Amino acid sequence: MSMPLGVILAGGRATRMGGGDKGLRTLGEKRIIDHVIDRLRPQCAALAINANGDPARLAEFGLPVLPDSLPDHPGPLAGVLAGLNWAAARGATAIVTAAADTPFFPTNLVARLQQDAGPKGLCLAASHDEDGILRRHPTFGLWPVALRDDLRAALETGMRKIVLWTDQHDAGTALFASEAGDPFFNINTPEDIDTGLQLMGTR
């Protein structure tokens, strides 16, 4: 199966972190987004970053910076749409997304998403929380370019919740083990950086 394009979702406002780009905060010897790039790059044919504001602040990464194609920060689905538009222009058939604040996601993310995709090629990652409850991680998904017009129409009519749209299209679920901690632990607050450093010591 061919490698999809990868899109790092960094378009949020990071209000719980005090604003700015969460991905540019330091975690160990690298920034959070460096960890994300290092994990996603080997799994994808090419990478881009979905981010709003001045793209010059991300120029050092040498990756295309894709702003939301819809105004007023409508959420991660707008970043997915921006990625699908970029992929369509390159003649690609699918993208995989990863959040810029989640540095420990699985190194076999893409392979598992492709393996467990639903009939339309959609798939979301999932893991079990501390109580054994299944949690989907909708910013980690496989998204076919063929659905971009449908996604654009849904966003224009007010759709914001990812799983509502993916459920309409019979998305598959790729379940990842969480025995060593949630592989989709994300950094939302300054305190989460301390937790992330602890997790780095156990992985």
Rank of each mutant, 00 (worst) to 15 (best):
L5N: 07
A125D: 11
D54Y: 11
G118S: 06
T102F: 14
Q168V: 00
A171Y: 06
R90I: 02
L84D: 08
L84W: 13
I187H: 14
K30P: 04
T97S: 04
D129Y: 09
H169Y: 06
T93K: 03
P144E: 06
A153W: 04
G62F: 14
E191D: 15
L47W: 15
D54A: 14
R136D: 02
D194F: 12
D170F: 07
A59R: 09
R203V: 11
Q198E: 15
D72T: 00
A51Y: 08
L77E: 10
T139I: 02
S178I: 03
D149K: 01
E60M: 13
V7S: 07
R152D: 12
L142F: 05
L27S: 12
G118P: 04
L134F: 10
T26E: 13
G11L: 01
T166I: 00
A146T: 05
S178P: 03
G118T: 03
H137Y: 10
F176W: 10
G201I: 03
D129H: 08
P64R: 09
E29C: 05
L81W: 09
H35S: 13
E191C: 08
G53C: 09
T157K: 05
H35A: 10
M1R: 03
L27P: 09
R152K: 08
Q198Y: 12
L5M: 09
A94Q: 13
R203H: 15
D192F: 09
P138T: 01
I37T: 09
D101R: 08
A78S: 07
W143I: 00
I133T: 06
T189K: 06
T97H: 00
T202S: 15
H137D: 02
G121I: 05
T189S: 09
I133R: 00
T102S: 14
D129T: 02
L84F: 10
G20P: 10
S69E: 11
D116E: 13
A100D: 15
P55V: 04
T15E: 14
D129L: 02
A59W: 06
I133D: 00
I162T: 10
P42V: 02
S69Q: 09
Q168H: 11
H35C: 09
T93V: 00
D68H: 12
L175Q: 12
G20E: 15
A111I: 08
D72F: 05
S69P: 03
D38F: 10
A99K: 04
A88N: 02
G11P: 02
R112K: 10
T97V: 04
A174M: 07
L66D: 12
E156T: 01
L40G: 09
I33N: 00
A99M: 05
R39V: 04
A88Y: 04
C44H: 15
R16M: 11
D182Y: 15
R41Y: 15
G79R: 02
L84P: 06
T107F: 10
G181Y: 11
L84A: 05
L70W: 11
V96G: 11
A56P: 01
